[in-house]
Amino acid sequence: MERETTFIHLTDLHIGRPGHDDPHLFSDTTATLETILGMIATIEPRPSFVVASGDLTNRGDAESFQALKSVMARLDLPVVYALGNHDTREGFYRGFLDRAEDLDAPYFHDQVIDGVHLITLDSSIPGQIGGAIEPEQFAWLERVLETHADLPKLIVSHHPPEIGDEGEFAPWRSIRGEDTAKLAALIKGRNVVGILSGHIHYDRVTVWHGVPVVIGMGQHAATDILVKDVLRMVNGVSFAIGTVRDSGLTVSFVPLPSDRAELNRYPLDMLRKLNEGMAAAAE
């Protein structure tokens, strides 16, 4: 009989700091997360784990991570966390892990849950919107991909790999091109059944070098993909239910009701300049 392992994919939770008025937080993300956790509790078969693929908070401060920790405490399942560009490593370590040392270190890790090898990368680069994979992570990834060779592998990364020429026109949307190429070379022939990501705020699946890259809309707001000249954000929330089988990966998206009302607009040139300015400041 074919083995099946069910999991939940959350992303872009954008939990805010309690009692803090944040003009860049467009919905009640805490209430949304609580609703989704209630839905997860009804799913059969019971999921083996939850993946939360970055932008866990909206501001990255320790208080927001403490709030996230409090909400997630009601979930009686293992949770695999990744960091996104809205998060900060220090805020996560202090507020979520109660850690007080090595606060600048990237957060990458792997574990086996119910027959699935989960490999989590930290694609966040402090001070930047777009993503990258640091050399130490690539060295670690090369080693860890050699382990558990008989098990299907899921890679978790907040930023997805660069697809086509999107990096040339929107460098903030993905892992930078040179790191995307390195990642593609490393995972070739390594039993990677999928990559779970977020960041761009709409549901998308791309078969990339034979591997499904699954991006979730997330729990904050949605990108209106029908509008190309600006980044138009509208009401929209979803999460995903995934199943890993011997034959591969299945993902079903669960959208919550939405009127798709406009929340904000970002000029593309502003985002490009902001990303370039952040990158220059980080050098």
Rank of each mutant, 00 (worst) to 15 (best):
S157L: 13
R17G: 00
D269F: 11
D150V: 07
H220P: 00
I40E: 00
E283K: 15
T11H: 08
K69Q: 10
Y81A: 06
R89T: 09
F26K: 11
R232Q: 15
A281I: 09
I195A: 05
I125Y: 11
I40N: 01
N191Q: 06
L121E: 01
F253V: 14
P135V: 00
L274S: 14
D110G: 12
A62S: 04
E136G: 03
A279S: 14
D150Q: 10
D122E: 09
G248F: 05
T223W: 12
M1L: 13
P212Y: 01
V79Q: 09
V227C: 10
T57D: 01
A170R: 14
E162I: 07
H24L: 15
H209M: 03
L154D: 06
F108H: 15
L97S: 09
R176Y: 11
Y202S: 12
K273C: 11
T32D: 06
P212A: 06
V211M: 03
G236V: 00
A31W: 05
S258D: 03
E44K: 06
M233H: 13
E262D: 10
N264R: 15
L274R: 15
T30P: 08
N275W: 13
A280F: 08
V244Q: 01
V79Y: 00
W172C: 10
L151C: 08
E101C: 10
M72S: 02
I129Q: 12
L196I: 10
D22C: 06
L10N: 04
D61I: 06
F96Q: 02
L68D: 03
G38N: 01
I225T: 15
R74I: 11
I119S: 05
P45C: 05
G236A: 05
D179L: 02
R17K: 15
S53Y: 09
D102V: 04
G236D: 05
L141Y: 07
G91L: 03
L37C: 03
I163A: 13
D87H: 00
D21V: 13
T250Y: 07
L97W: 10
G218R: 07
A82E: 02
H86V: 00
D246R: 06
L141P: 06
I40V: 04
D21F: 13
G277C: 06
P23V: 00
P78D: 07
F239V: 02
L10Q: 06
S252T: 15
D229L: 04
F108M: 06
K188M: 08
Y266K: 14
A139I: 11
A240I: 04
T6V: 15
T223Y: 14
P212T: 05
A41I: 00
T32M: 04
